[in-house]
């Protein structure tokens, strides 16, 4: 019991302390470079996100997409796959939700749930492309999934400019009535129930990974594919499956995020949540159970960065620098479970 709970807990405490230290150092550097007031900036960054219930709700809102993509990435990384399609799948899932929900009509609960499942299914199917390319042909999944992201992005742009357009909003999907959306948990802060779905997915993924034979086979494949093959586990199958599951969870996340936080789909660029999934999973040590905590933490940092940017001296982008250093340090201190063999560019 001790090993199962105490060590991971200690682990995450050390990681968070390290991350806070990184944030403080980067912010100090940014203050020196951009002539900001260090005291003001630190107060806004660390205390700003906790100042009232709206700010706290904002942290929770920020965390929802990160939970979905973080889990999607952690399942893939556990299997040794560095697939970037989480990004495109999240985007595609959100777009599909924006189109499908109005088509299904106003049926409370049924419409959003069906839409979310459709988003998951569609993106799982698309995710099969890089997955199968990897497992059958040995094509590096990083390059192929990245290309697929761009393709999905431009196809969505095409569809939204042409087919899915609302006459009053040229570059957006039709308006989502309240019954088509996921119910709110709190009317005042507009916190959506997609948070509950995200948490449920986190728990299910954890159970899948640690309590089922498929999850076990997936982890063995990630640790040592040859060993998996020798012991009768078809590693190719899990390489494919992990990427398809990851893509469909990301698609589900995109749909749930749109139906919870927006009234229509009108994104005009990739939202970057897929790449954030890598930050989350490295904070969470590739453990789905720890993903929600990691997402909340990153949400907190992001709301902090937003508060800082409101002061005027330091732009919001400072968060990218903080995130990057966090990934590298965490990767260095605590080895990733799944380690890739050979060069990524060698297809």
């Amino acid at each position: 019991m001790k090993h199962r709970f105490v060590r991971p807990l200690l682990n995450i405490v050390v990681r968070l302390a390290l991350a806070v230290a990184v944030a403080a150092v980067v912010l100090t550097g940014a203050c020196l470079l951009l002539k900001g007031n260090i005291e003001e900036v630190m107060a806004a960054f660390f205390l700003g996100p906790l100042e009232d219930e709206y700010a706290v709700a904002e942290i929770l809102r920020e965390a929802v997409p990160l939970i979905f993509t973080g889990i999607a990435v952690s399942l893939m990384v556990r299997c040794g796959q560095f697939n970037m399609f989480v990004e495109g799948a999240f985007f595609g899932g959100a777009f599909l939700a924006g189109v499908l929900a109005p088509m299904l009509g106003e049926h409370a609960v049924i419409t959003p749930l069906l839409t979310i499942l459709a988003g998951a299914a569609a993106m799982g199917i698309l995710g099969y492309i890089p997955a199968k390319m990897k497992s059958s042909l040995g094509v590096n999944e990083f390059v192929s999934s990245l290309m697929l992201n761009y393709i999905v992005f431009w196809v969505v742009m095409y569809l939204i400019h042409g087919i899915a357009a609302d006459p009053d909003y040229p570059n957006a999907t039709p308006y989502l009535e309240d019954t088509m959306r996921l119910p709110l948990l709190n009317e005042d802060t507009e916190l959506s129930s997609n948070l509950v779905i995200a948490l449920a997915i986190a728990v299910c993924s954890g159970l899948f990974l640690f309590k089922t034979k498929w999850g076990y086979a997936l982890r063995i494949t990630g640790d040592n594919p040859s060993f998996a093959d020798y012991s009768g586990i078809s590693s190719d199958r899990y390489v494919t499956a992990s990427q398809v599951i990851g893509a469909s969870l990301a698609g589900m996340g995109g749909a749930a995020f749109l139906l919870g936080n927006y009234y229509r789909f009108q994104w005009s660029s990739l939202p970057n949540y897929g790449f954030d999934g890598f930050v989350i999973t490295s904070i969470a040590g590739n453990n789905p159970y720890a993903v929600p905590a990691a997402a909340l933490f990153l949400g907190y940092l992001r709301v902090g960065a937003l508060q800082v940017s409101r002061l005027g001296d330091i732009p919001n982008e400072v968060i990218y620098v903080i995130q990057a250093i966090i990934i590298i340090l965490f990767g260095a201190h605590f080895f990733f479970h799944a380690r890739r063999k050979g060069g990524a560019g060698n297809a």
Binding site: F82, F142, F275, F278, V279, S282, E317, V318, I319, Y320, V321, Q323, A324, I325, I327, I328, L329, G331, A332, F336, R339, R340, A344
Partner: peptide, 18 residues
Amino acid sequence: LRADSFLSGIALNTFASG
């Protein structure tokens, strides 16, 4: 630091855009 080169690369791309 012996971090995964692949993951470090992703991180450094994020770093660069920031």
